[in-house]
Design a protein around this nucleic acid. Structure first.
Lengths: 161, 161
DNA sequence: TCTTGTCCTGTTACAAGGTAACAGTTAAGC
DNA sequence: GCTTAACTGTTACCTTGTAACAGGACAAGA
């Protein structure tokens, strides 16, 4: 898996995007999922941006391709991508990022820069310490866990808040 | 601090609401904050509901008190309550809960029932395992962390999904 | 090859969540 | 009492998300 802080370091975006797209194609073929042109295009947009994008930003870019596009177009593709572990929703931002390491549905943790909106995905500590125990205690059945840390990335530190 | 699973157990709501409201008053007095009638009323509404409420649900209840009320009224009160640790925003639901143990600004973790929207607050494992380390590694400065587990509470398990 | 069912797309119309900006009012400090 | 800062009321608007329905593509089996 790529290093968790990759998003915050200089690197070859084009190459990491291409490799993620390829991984997505492989994964879909293996699982008999249809990575249709619309879905692939949305994934590509996310990969190119390499940061969290709102659904309406994605829509704009779809429109730049020449077609009109209404909100459900973006949301359907995003739902597909999120359900299949190819992208993640960032609740805090009402936005979406491509997954750097697509694989079967998986929870992840995120470092979100509140200045530049770049998002780094970090592998998840499975039972999340206390929380798993507290849930078991309460008889609560956890299905999915969102972990989002908000702060400043290295580039945005130093300087005004 | 109240047991983390309190929200999922039968208990005397009226009493726990009254005690939380009292704690809030004490805390505001101590910190020289103005718990104005509008703010207190919103907190009371949250405490009575004893689950996550959307801003517009809160608005409805404010209107039931007889006054008209526009969205900024609710949002201002909610901002005040969240900033001062008297309530928490649940990102996943775009909703708010009263804090069961008001105190200086603090992060918490939540167990959210996706059927009945009840929310239990659990004390937070401070550095959240891997994440703190990954952040340090990346040079990322964490300011606030959101941890939300989605699932089914004891009462909503068994039966349809 | 035709048919049928299933999944995907296009589009309209709207619901829900959230905020900027400005005018007026209250409270606290001097 | 006067000034200043903080809070409230209101208008108007922007952003995010979804329900519902019609039409199209495609694979599987008769």
């Amino acid at each position: 898996m790529p290093s968790p802080d990759l998003a915050f370091r200089a690197h070859d975006h084009a190459r990491c995007a291409a490799s993620a797209l390829h991984a997505a194609q492989t994964l879909c073929a293996a699982r008999n999922l249809r990575l249709t042109p619309a879905r692939a295009r949305v994934l590509e947009i996310l990969l190119e941006a390499h940061r969290a994008l709102g659904a309406y930003e994605i829509l704009e870019r779809l429109r730049e391709d020449g077609q009109p596009a209404q909100p459900p177009v973006a949301y359907r593709a995003l739902n597909f991508l999120c359900e299949n572990g190819l992208a993640h929703r960032i609740e805090r931002l009402n936005a979406f990022v491509a997954c750097v390491d697509p694989q079967a549905e998986h929870d992840a943790a995120f470092l979100i820069c509140r200045r530049c909106d770049r998002v780094a995905e970090s592998p998840r500590d499975q039972d999340a310490g206390h929380l798993g125990a507290a849930a078991a205690d309460a008889g609560f059945a956890i299905e999915r866990t969102v972990v989002e840390a908000l702060g400043l990335c290295p580039d945005c530190q130093g300087g005004q808040p």
